[in-house]
Design a binder for these strands. Structure first.
Lengths: 202, 202
DNA sequence: AGGGTCGGAGAACGTTCGTTCTCCGTGGTC
DNA sequence: GACCACGGAGAACGAACGTTCTCCGACCCT
């Protein structure tokens, strides 16, 4: 048992593995998954093909590792964005400011889980599951934020839908102002919810 | 000039062309674009490879034709869904009931433009443009619906974001109830907007 | 009836894919 | 100094890709 813990720790700290994942993340996110071959990945990661296959048994396992990597990165960053806000209202709106910064980055190309789902879900059930898990967890996160602020779970779902819509629309149209539009919609939903709030905040 | 018009008319009425597009639409939408080869398309359309290439010069041109096909289908259907509603409020909410029906269909796998963008946008600028055009037109459609009902354009943008978020979330999680959640959010936004409406409906 | 265009089936072409293998140099161990 | 485990570069492999070509049978025109 302790051995397993060590192995996991070592795995996520393995610099070679991490380098491959980050290179794969950049290429897959920028060009799509099938568009990037193992040779391009090998070159971009600066790793020989042989070593690549000692760390990962297949391309699919790399894709799944990239999705894990993106998931924890996303979870950590939105948690941090929320954590630095004081009021329940500000905590619920923090997500849209985080999105605004993300949308403005040069590499932004939408949500990698949506992209992976569209391209690979049918042929790789593992990818489909990971994408569903990611969205489910984000939904739970927003629901929790909502209930902690004394609102209904439903409000969390609604704020989640706005965030999702902003991601895809900003990606395709290139209009990073979608984050602000989603924020203003969220503010309006909050103002409705506040007038029918179930309980006062603890 | 009249000849060009004839050619266009004939083109969109060409049953062979239409059969190829519909077969391609089914396969691309279900499995992704790169995952479906020309041979699978040939087989599913019941058309020889030679004839396929007399109608379309390349795979990319088929992809673009499929996107055109989906765009007009989408535009016609949401226009029809809106048209059978009487009140401005019902017209604005009709989109979510249309989405609910779509989400429940077996073949539903999200928005094909989002999927195409994620998979092909980097390598095919034409695909990226068509996806952006589609989203831009849907946004304009919702904005127009909103202003016709006496609301701000901004409200139309917000309702659009909810619809987009519902599409991706329903696709990935398989939860068709997202349409209803988006609808309830839209109702809340409408109730806010009604209290600050700029002008009465004509 | 015979000449010629058309299209079907599918082989062929060159490329690229994911994955494995071969060759070879290097560095550590007894 | 001989041995060996390791890893780098990239060739090799079979499959699949998008696209073109070859062959051949079926139908049209006069």
């Amino acid at each position: 048992m302790a051995r397993q813990g060590d192995a996991q720790l070592q795995q996520s700290a393995d610099p070679l593995r991490q380098r491959i994942i980050e290179a794969a993340d950049e290429l897959y996110y920028a060009h799509g998954f099938r568009a990037v071959g193992m040779d391009a990945l090998r070159q971009h990661a600066g790793v020989s093909l042989k070593r690549l296959y000692t760390v990962f048994p297949s391309k699919e396992s790399i894709v799944l590792a990239v999705l894990d990597y993106r998931h924890t990165m996303w979870a950590d960053e939105i948690a941090a964005a929320v954590a630095q806000e004081g009021t329940p209202r500000a905590r619920l709106l923090a997500i849209y400011d985080y999105l605004a910064g993300w949308f403005r980055s040069d590499s932004f190309r939408g949500c990698v889980f949506i992209n992976a789902f569209g391209e690979l879900a049918t042929e790789s059930p593992a990818v489909a599951t990971k994408a569903a898990d990611h969205k489910r967890e984000f939904r739970r996160f927003m629901e929790q934020l909502a209930t902690e602020a004394g609102f209904s779970e439903e409000l969390g779902d609604q704020l989640m839908l706005l965030a999702e819509g902003a991601q895809t629309t900003a990606a395709i149209t290139g209009d990073s102002a979608m984050a602000l539009k989603a924020r203003r919609a969220a503010e309006a939903l909050l103002s409705v919810a506040e007038s029918t709030r179930t309980h006062s905040v603890r």
